[in-house]
Amino acid sequence: MSFEKIATDTVVWLLRQWMRLPVPFLLSLGRGLGRIIYWLPNKRKHVAKVNIGLCFPEMQAEDSKQLLKANMIATGQGLIEQMMSLWCHHDRFVQHVSFSGLEHIQTDENGRAPILLTCHTTSIQFGVRCLNTRLNKPGHMLMRQDNNKVLEAHLTAARERYAEKVIDKKDMRTLLRSLAQGNPVYYAPDQNFSYNFEYIPFFGVDAATTVALAKLAHVKNIAVVPWFCFRTGTNTWHVEVLPRAEFFGAADYRQVLLDMHALFEQHIKKYPEQYLWVHRRFKTHPQGKNYLYK
């Protein structure tokens, strides 16, 4: 047995025990963790600071500083919410979540479910867990595999308890099979891509964006239904499901992605501190990898 496996198994066991603590206490610990992240020099804070500066160039220095601090706090709470989604029973928190637009998640005349489109808010996986409690058939998750295979096994086992199936982000065949069986698939394409992408402006900054969903929706005539999960209070959340995004299915993939980013920007601006600014969204750059983050 490797040291990596022993260490990972031990950490996961400790986290699962930690998740038995009262939810309000756990969330307060997450916010405290976020404050520590803000005050200590670290790479993620630097990435968030760069992203906020790029996406909100008109923002005054003090406002940008306050947004960065709020984002670190939201990120810290988001880490706890992710662990809650993995290892807490939903009865402990779902009563604090409100929902709207659930009627928009419908199968088509062939019984095929839609793709559930969202962007990476700090509550994204918590939102998936909560939304699945309201669906007739659980939504499957399209995910990037973790480099730590021991940790990935723990994460997959936990996610499959509420999402039934976790699909590798490159496995389009399994994605289509899930939709055909009537299971929606959660898809968040707003992260950096280094293959099969186009540079599409995101808050006015060219971002390497996958074209896979735009092509899939057009070629296979798949419905794409947007949804978003945001924190509306210290311990309250709202999951909003929107009507089908009719712009998906068009043959002009670039315009589809422009419209998708416009939709994301519209909702991120409502709660800008809750977007995942710690991700290197502009990592792939014409002037070289990580050019904007040096």
Rank of each mutant, 00 (worst) to 15 (best):
D168G: 11
L21N: 07
H238P: 02
T209N: 01
A48E: 01
D171T: 05
N196Y: 13
N147V: 03
A70Y: 15
V150D: 09
S28I: 00
F248V: 08
A245P: 00
T107N: 15
P184N: 02
A250E: 12
L151H: 10
I52T: 01
R173S: 02
S64Q: 13
L155A: 09
A7E: 14
T234Q: 13
M141K: 00
R159I: 04
E265H: 07
Q255T: 14
S85E: 02
K283A: 02
F230R: 05
P22R: 12
Y187T: 06
V225L: 04
L116N: 09
L29E: 03
Y253D: 00
S123V: 09
L86M: 09
S98K: 10
A217T: 11
K269L: 13
M172N: 04
Q95Y: 11
R280K: 15
V166W: 11
R44D: 00
E265I: 01
V128P: 00
N148T: 06
G111I: 09
L29M: 15
K49R: 14
L79F: 06
K43H: 09
K289R: 10
H140N: 09
A158P: 03
I80G: 07
E58H: 15
L86I: 03
E4D: 14
M72P: 12
K170Y: 15
N221S: 15
M143V: 14
D108C: 09
H46L: 10
T133S: 11
P184M: 12
K65F: 08
V241C: 07
G249L: 01
V239N: 03
K137Q: 12
L292E: 08
T133I: 05
T234N: 15
P226G: 13
L33I: 12
N196W: 13
Y271H: 12
A262G: 14
L33N: 01
K137C: 07
T234S: 09
G204M: 13
Q125Y: 10
D108I: 11
K283P: 02
G30R: 01
T209C: 12
T174I: 01
N290T: 11
A223T: 06
I52Q: 07
A70P: 01
P138K: 09
L33T: 12
H261E: 02
H46S: 08
F99M: 11
Y291R: 14
H120Y: 05
K269F: 00
G101F: 02
V205F: 00
G127C: 03
L33Y: 02
C130G: 01
L15H: 09
E109W: 06
V23I: 08
G182E: 10
G53E: 04
T210Q: 06
H120T: 08
A223Q: 11
N147L: 11
V211H: 11
P138Q: 04
H279P: 10
L242P: 00
T174G: 01
A163M: 13
